[in-house]
Write a protein that binds this DNA or RNA. Structure first.
Lengths: 335, 335
DNA sequence: CTGAAAGCGCTTACAG
DNA sequence: CTGAAAGCGCTTACAG
């Protein structure tokens, strides 16, 4: 292994000077710089990051914690993370928690060992206190999630409004019995979407019925199962809002299997706008959320915080959009 | 920041002893160990990985290079990587190349800076020489891909046989005009699947027709576009083998849009068996490949190589399986 | 079983 | 603009 001393010797300068050239420190004469670069090329010298990391007390690495990278929603966010990190010379460690609290905790604890300079949480199910504690040790940014009452930088959409919009759309189509298939209520973003559902019904003076509200876990299968339950009701809903696209796809499967048609018999609206939406039949009407941008801006914020730059805004809310496709239609009382 | 010297002082031992306790070195008396552990707890000491990395000349990190994590096929492989790495105390750096050769090269060059201890390539489009060069500096394992004529450890399925099987299945259903929608021919695994297609036709004495072979790029859209081309032929195929599921989904979309039915008019078979297969209509018949296992075993191999353990087998071929669903049926000459 | 000491390969205040 | 020197916080041969 060729080290910085070898370069220094060959170029007949000190290691300090070699280091200055390589870190683009301005205080080097063009002549010396050329000599050093020549030696670097000759020896094919690559600085040892392990050493510079220790010296700078920084790993040049951030960790992205997601609940499941197999989920296209999160893999897009990750891509946003990655592009920004790469452009800034940072690496990203993959922190897939597999929806496990324990693993989430393990990842967060890495901050104490200095294996990462910062943390992006696209899942934050641990108690507030633990996350807050981490954020006091190193920069933390939340993506999609947020924590009530704390000042941790956050990038997300307005889940309450987005959900309300989805449900009001169904109401405007004439539906009054509207089912809700929600994600795990342990996740704040699920609770927000339920809130939006409540708001829409209240605004339109529709009675809220507990039996129309089913909790899934964001998987296709849970959408399928909960939809079967809704269909088994004496008076089933004529429209259903599923708080992510996978559950919506599962719901559609259940509806078809029971011999009903979407949207003729039951309208469905999803959430996220993953690529799947355009591939199932009928194509899924949904709320589109700027996944990649959420990741992109969250990483931007994190790197700014790491570089100790003042953040202009600590909370960023990105726009969502209703994507009209083919799973919603007017309520038809004849049915 | 509390460092190892603080612990040493409190426990009234040397830093060497503290280090021995924390690295589970056997040569410490139970009494000393207890004293040290007590101090560690008291001070909430966490070792600084940056320092131990430098000392051990190891980052405890491996890099996983994939062409696109947004692709469910690769995100599953990544999950296999991650589970094994985590279980062995390693971290995994995300290396998404976005299908770019340049980015692939950038990631591979990280080995020279010691930011990672090993490399798993789930995409290897660079010239053999560059990959071989990397593998001479640190452990490299190929997942899915392989490199002809070199002895780099590899985990994959037998793509030639799998493709041959897919096409022979269509032939046994009576099809003789069989289209092929292949992935980029710059990728060895695409070429292997084409080889399997050739073998199946040759074995059954069916003439190979260039016009039935279309090159896509593994995206839904390319499947859609190439299928339109096949449909525009004077004598279109009665069955099509798409070398991944996304392209198959795109092909089905094109077929339906042109007013034909799958499988009545045209049979389709895909490759990979991603979750999408069960969600489109009709459900996609495909070749299932053990994605997670490929990742799992590849990481196992990599870590063994890093630990300098002798590998029993350097090339692992995992089984594939034909998944019967609803997109293939008997050739119907009247149809 | 334990400690004193060297050293991993950088970077950065400090002095000139 | 450049160099000598210290030091980041560990781990590990070496000696006892």
């Amino acid at each position: 292994m060729v080290a910085i001393v070898d370069v220094a010797k060959m170029a007949k300068v000190s290691t300090a000077t070699v280091s200055r050239v390589l870190t683009n420190n301005k205080n080097v004469s063009p002549k010396t710089r050329a000599k050093v670069l020549e030696a670097v090329n000759q020896l094919e010298y690559k600085p040892n990051r392990l050493a510079s990391n220790l010296r700078k007390m920084s790993s040049n690495t951030v960790m992205a914690v997601v609940p499941d990278i197999t989920n296209p929603f999160f893999s897009s966010i990750l891509q946003g993370f990655k592009d920004v990190a790469l452009a800034n010379g940072y690496h990203v460690l993959l922190g897939d928690t597999g929806n496990s609290l324990e693993q989430e905790r393990n990842y967060i604890n890495l901050v104490k060992e200095r294996v990462v300079d910062g943390l992006i949480l696209a899942t934050a199910r641990l108690p507030k206190e633990e996350i807050l504690a981490a954020s006091q040790e190193i920069p933390v940014v939340l993506a999609c999630e947020y924590i009530d009452g704390f000042d941790i930088p956050t990038v997300s959409i307005d889940n309450v409004s987005a959900a309300r919009e989805a449900v009001e759309y169904l109401i405007h189509l004439g539906h009054r019995r509207i089912g809700l298939i929600t994600g795990p209520l342990s996740v704040i973003l699920s609770r927000d979407r339920v809130k939006g559902y409540y708001q829409a019904l209240n605004l339109n003076e529709i009675q809220i019925e507990g039996v129309l509200i089913q909790e899934g876990d964001f998987t296709v299968h849970s959408g399928y199962e909960t939809m079967l339950k809704l269909l088994a009701l004496e008076d089933p809903p004529t429209a259903v809002f599923a708080t992510n696209d996978e559950m919506a796809a599962g719901a559609i499967k259940a509806i078809k299997q029971k011999g009903f048609e979407v949207p003729k018999d039951i309208s469905i609206i999803g959430f996220d706008d993953i690529p799947l939406c355009g591939l199932i039949e009928p194509e899924l009407t949904t709320i589109s959320q700027p996944r990649y941008d959420v990741g992109y801006q969250a990483m931007q914020m994190l790197l700014n915080t790491i570089k100790k730059e003042e953040l202009i805004r600590k909370q960023i809310v990105l726009p969502h959009r209703l994507m009209h496709r083919n799973t919603c239609c007017k309520y038809n009382p004849i049915g």
